[in-house]
Nucleic acid binder design. Sequence first.
DNA 1: GCAGGTGTTGACGTTCACGTAAAGGGAAAC
DNA 2: GTTTCCCTTTACGTGAACGTCAACACCTGC
Lengths: 141, 141
Amino acid sequence: MGAAIHIEALAPIEPRTDRDSFSISDLCTEFGVTARALRFYEDEGLIGPERRGTARIYSHRDRARLAWILRGKRVGFSLAEIREMIDLYDVGDGRKVQRQVTLERCLDRIRLLEAQKRDIDAHIEELTQFVDLLKSSDSAH
Amino acid sequence: MGAAIHIEALAPIEPRTDRDSFSISDLCTEFGVTARALRFYEDEGLIGPERRGTARIYSHRDRARLAWILRGKRVGFSLAEIREMIDLYDVGDGRKVQRQVTLERCLDRIRLLEAQKRDIDAHIEELTQFVDLLKSSDSAH
DNA sequence: GCAGGTGTTGACGTTCACGTAAAGGGAAAC
DNA sequence: GTTTCCCTTTACGTGAACGTCAACACCTGC
């Protein structure tokens, strides 16, 4: 961690029409995660690629889901929470009451994310003020 | 965790002019953290309240710093990173080169936070779309 | 003068999200 | 055919951020 900025955090995911499946190391290099992490996500039920024998084959859908998982992590969700959200999506075509619950939870999530945005804005503002202070004291000398 | 939304995440910190020092349990109840957490932050050098004998006495400055720490946590920073940022503030009046380094790191942080905001926006948008889909399929039945 | 509440310092336990060998299979390159 | 990769599973290890006792100190009201 530290001050390292990951480029992939800045670039939105693009569809990649040149291939139609990916190996585990393909996705590892593309997203900057280890194979261990991907297998761990699979153990936790976050993703379920096909198998050719024992080897994992990731589809475009799997790749997009992985991108979604990683973004979820970046915005501060735990793997358990991400899994829960994936489950919500999966029961999206379930019964009426189920859908109502799902809806409420999604709205909760959205409210939480918006609160988080406000926190970030406040943090940015304070840092910016400090930066300005540094700049002015720098030019003063 | 889970779907629990913390109200304190929504309310900005207010100065409280009614008191001029706080006990550990004062801050615990106000910010919804445990005493163990506060002592842990102290062990990690994030905060250093005065002592009356062995008891900790938190000033307004300590209280504001705690609020800052917790907000840092909410936006995804580790305690080590928060500590590093506090150190940056503390060397703000140091030598010129130091200040320059500090400035760069602050700008890095800001860029990171803005990338995070974009992630959150993308997440919110997807959730909103899903919510709309739920609503429409709900009224269809 | 002592129970009860609030504080303290260790020290060990726990959860999460992986890291890190260990030991092996399958194919492709030489 | 054997070395070289890439991939696999199983299993124990690790760092961060506390939780959870245990054992003790200090004031406060009764």
